[in-house]
Amino acid sequence: MGVVQRLLLLLMFLALLVECLAYVMSKWGGYSSYPIYHIYTVVEYVFLMQIFSQTVTSRIFSRILRFSVPLFGLFALLNIVLWQPLNEPNTNATILTSIIMVIVAVSWFFLTLNEMRYSRIEKSSAFWICVGVLIYFSSSIVLFGFGNRLIEIELVDSISVWVIHILFNMIHYLCFNIALWMDPE
């Protein structure tokens, strides 16, 4: 298992932990899980940027990804302080994450095509990570773009949206699982 796959496994474990914690907090504690997602968004960003920077050969691109981490952290902090406090959904940070992740994933595809690094691209773990990221975060741009509006709508009326979101999330983690079994980077 390579470095990338270890980071991915850790990220998936953290995601599981966060989901369990959020569930427990809301079901048994009656607390809002929004604060956890404020923190998790940043943690997820850090992990994904680290994973992507390990898979690209372009040093400039790798440096840009690493440099964006503290900038994103700063933005997330400003978002909490100025626009969306901990008890509100962090749609701003989530949309920004989604847009950046889509750009990074598409850039990875473009760079990899130019480099001709793989004989079969679908056998690389990085490919499946990008597929999962692209599928989930592209739909998240739409979802969280209307996130604040969706909160105002009754869950019964917006259930189809959340079902699709869950489906894409499942595909997202399914792709990550496939990435764990592919050739290490």
Partner: peptide, 11 residues
Amino acid sequence: VNAIVIGMIGM
């Protein structure tokens, strides 16, 4: 809601 669903599926 339909617009959001179509948007997500389109993406």
